[in-house]
Structures are given as structure tokens and as C-alpha cells.
């Protein structure tokens, strides 16, 4: 278990918890990023946002936000 920001490219993880204000959570929910959802980490580098595959769509998440998303490897 750890935050999304610390995961590796190519890993498959399950979202465990979204820590942050309500506004933040709503924003993620709208794009299908919710507790229990499984996502693929498509792309991760040291500077760019993190690219996820969520139920067939590709979503970019800023690094600051990725630090507030708790995930579990599967």
C-alpha cells in the first residue's frame, strides 16, 4: 500500500482511499477514479503528471494529487 505517486510505470493498482478536500474527490470521481476501482499506471516519469488507464479511458493526474491517492498493488 502506498500513494499513487510512488508506484511504478506499468503497475496495476486498486484505489484504496482519496485523501483531500471534497472538491478534490469530486473531481476524481467524475473521471471514474473512486475507491475500489482498478487502474493501470500507463506512464510515469519524474516531471510529468501520472497517466492512468481507468476503465478504458486515459486520465492524467497532477503529481500533487497523485500524492493524495492511496493505492494497493494487485
Amino acid at each position: 500500500m502506498g500513494v499513487l505517486l510512488n508506484q511504478k510505470e506499468g503497475q496495476k493498482v486498486e484505489i484504496v482511499e482519496l485523501k483531500g478536500c471534497s472538491n478534490f474527490i469530486s473531481k476524481l470521481y467524475k473521471l471514474g477514479i473512486k475507491e475500489g476501482v482498478k487502474v493501470n499506471i500507463k506512464r510515469k516519469s519524474n516531471i510529468c503528471p501520472i497517466l492512468l488507464e481507468v476503465n478504458g479511458s486515459i486520465v492524467a493526474i497532477g503529481r500533487g494529487m497523485a500524492a493524495k491517492i492511496l493505492v494497493r498493488g494487485i
Partner: peptide
């Protein structure tokens, strides 16, 4: 005001 940061669908 806290800027929530980027969450963006890449079409």
C-alpha cells in the same frame, strides 16, 4: 484557495 491540480482526460 487551494488549487486542486490537474485531473484531465487525455482523449
Amino acid at each position: 484557495t487551494l488549487a486542486p491540480g490537474l485531473v484531465l482526460e487525455i482523449p
